[in-house]
Amino acid sequence: MKIRVIGRWGAYPKRGEATAGFLLEIGNHKILLDCGSGVLSVLQNYMGLHELTAVFVSHNHFDHMADLGSLQYACLIDMDLKQRDTPLRLFVAKDSNDKWTIPVMKGTIEQEINQDTIVTFDDGLTLTFFRTDHDVYCLGVKISYKGKSLVYTADTRYDETLVPYLKDADLLITEASFYANFDAAKYGHMNAVEAGELATKAGVKKLLLTHLPHFGDIQVLREEAALMYKGEVVLADLGLQVVL
């Protein structure tokens, strides 16, 4: 199981980078976790877009789904050029009250998911989902494969009810949108200290901080998380790959 940082910024991308996006490689699967602004450009440094097998979209904020439209154009073109054999599966978080839609084109298939959905692939790879505390309907995802697990919270306020979903994960990818002296919950997010506390309560083996702020010294975020979590804390960096 390999996970690569494609985008690490909240709100908007810094020059040459991207907002939320992670490439998960397991066996024959290449799964994109969120598809924020700039993700498609960065992703092509590591693979062709026709190689993607699935995409998970955690919620309908632009910094997590802005490149979805362009991705669908890419899939349409790749189908016509015979570079893609099967449509790309889009697992899109929605609840019964969601009215937003994405244009589904030739080359993509949208599957709406909620916190009760379970996606299982034929080699045993399993994706389960849980609702997070954000300003819109938002899902985190747990990826399980051959005894290893990775959890990506997407966006959330600090919420101890998430602990059972994160429990004992080999890697927890969670946001650190603000520094310790900020009331992150006001904005629907967590600060770095809260991220560390959540990781400790869940007993995860490694913590990766993402959804980074555009102000201050972001290295401080790792130090603040380490005040609460004594395991390895990694600050997301462009192109960083973690192997589990």
Rank of each mutant, 00 (worst) to 15 (best):
T126A: 09
L209T: 11
D135N: 03
G188M: 12
I77W: 09
K146F: 00
L33H: 12
G38D: 08
P213L: 13
F22I: 00
E17T: 07
L125Q: 07
H211V: 14
V5A: 06
T101D: 09
V243P: 00
W9D: 07
C75P: 03
K206D: 02
I77A: 07
L43R: 07
T174M: 14
L32C: 11
K142C: 06
D67Q: 09
W9A: 04
I6K: 01
D123T: 02
A66P: 03
M1H: 04
K167G: 01
D135A: 06
A54D: 12
Q219P: 01
L88S: 11
T117S: 12
L166C: 06
I102V: 12
Y179H: 15
A236W: 03
K201P: 09
E224G: 04
V234Y: 02
V243E: 14
Q111K: 12
Q115I: 05
A11L: 05
D155G: 02
D63E: 11
M105L: 14
L90C: 06
M1G: 04
C75H: 02
L166M: 04
G147C: 13
F121Y: 15
R8K: 14
R4G: 07
V57S: 13
P213M: 09
E223L: 14
V193A: 04
V92D: 04
H189S: 09
M79E: 06
D78F: 11
D217L: 05
K146H: 07
L212N: 07
I3W: 05
E194M: 04
L90S: 00
T86R: 08
T174N: 13
P87R: 11
D217M: 02
A180I: 10
D116H: 10
A176H: 02
P103A: 14
D170L: 07
T210S: 15
S37Q: 15
V193W: 13
P13Q: 13
R8Y: 04
D155F: 12
M79R: 14
A74F: 00
K30Y: 01
L208C: 10
V242L: 12
A154Y: 08
T53Q: 01
A184E: 04
G147H: 00
D78S: 15
F56A: 02
M190R: 15
H64R: 03
A11V: 06
G216Y: 12
V141K: 01
T53A: 06
Y152C: 06
R15I: 12
E25L: 00
T117R: 07
V119E: 14
T126M: 13
G216W: 14
Y12M: 03
G188E: 11
Y73S: 06
K142T: 09
I173E: 02
K230G: 15
D78T: 06
V220G: 01
S41C: 02
S149C: 11
N45W: 07
V104R: 03
A236H: 01
Y179S: 09
D85F: 00
S70D: 09
S96T: 07
T19K: 05
L209N: 09
V151I: 10
T53H: 03
S149M: 08
K201E: 05
A202E: 04
L81P: 01
E112P: 03
